[in-house]
Design a binder for these strands. Structure first.
Lengths: 103, 103
DNA sequence: TTCGGTAGTCATCTTTTTCTGACTTATTGC
DNA sequence: GCAATAAGTCAGAAAAAGATGACTACCGAA
């Protein structure tokens, strides 16, 4: 039984796809920080109070898989990893800002 | 231990609030149909293929509680109930459309 | 008064998400 | 070599969300 959300007869909701990209307890927070510049795992752990490694990791993995974030290994002084917005990610920023300004 | 998402030190994400209004398996679909005019329980059951009473009921209750939808008892021919967008709901429509057009 | 339509509730079960704590791997400063 | 920093993984537990099936309540028509 393939339980895909196949709302047939044209009842599919396109907005749903986009909403799902940012659904989850920590994704909006991660996305917001990423809007201001590249983010790092350790920074996220510090900024997102209450979050845990596992949740941040899986949120990052999903954001990568959905191509909103790009992972980069920065071979410098203290070698580290950065996540920055992809083009697709940037495209969502204006809408995200509107969501923010809404209330 | 009150486990509220209190991202202190200014790290709260305002967009998160709005995103949560439309989070869940059926809310985007309900909202979308409500954009085109008042919706009824039985219609939703027909249109949202795969959905079940309980899920639709609780989605409707949450959309009401979040003041996106207003419930109205229509005392007419076949007495029934209608849900229509509130002002707050209408305010989200433009953003919702953008989410739709994004892909 | 019984039936169909409309709009649910309730208890329970299953699935999905999120959290916890212990352990891992690579690099770098001392 | 040894500890710290950075970025995780993994198994298991708990919590939240969603699904199921039975049952309820109101109205109107036959």
């Amino acid at each position: 039984m393939t339980t895909e959300n196949t709302n047939r007869e044209g009842a599919v909701c396109p907005a749903e796809e986009t909403l799902k990209l940012l659904s989850g307890k920590w994704k909006p927070g991660i996305f917001r920080l990423a809007c201001d510049g590249p983010v790092r795992f350790s920074t996220l752990m510090r900024e997102l109070t209450g979050a845990n490694k596992q949740s941040i990791t899986s949120a990052l993995r999903e954001l990568e898989a959905d191509e909103l974030l790009v992972k980069t290994i920065v071979r410098e002084k203290p070698l580290h990893i950065e996540y920055h917005l992809s083009q697709k990610g940037e495209a969502i920023v204006p809408i995200f800002r509107q969501l923010e300004s809404l209330k």
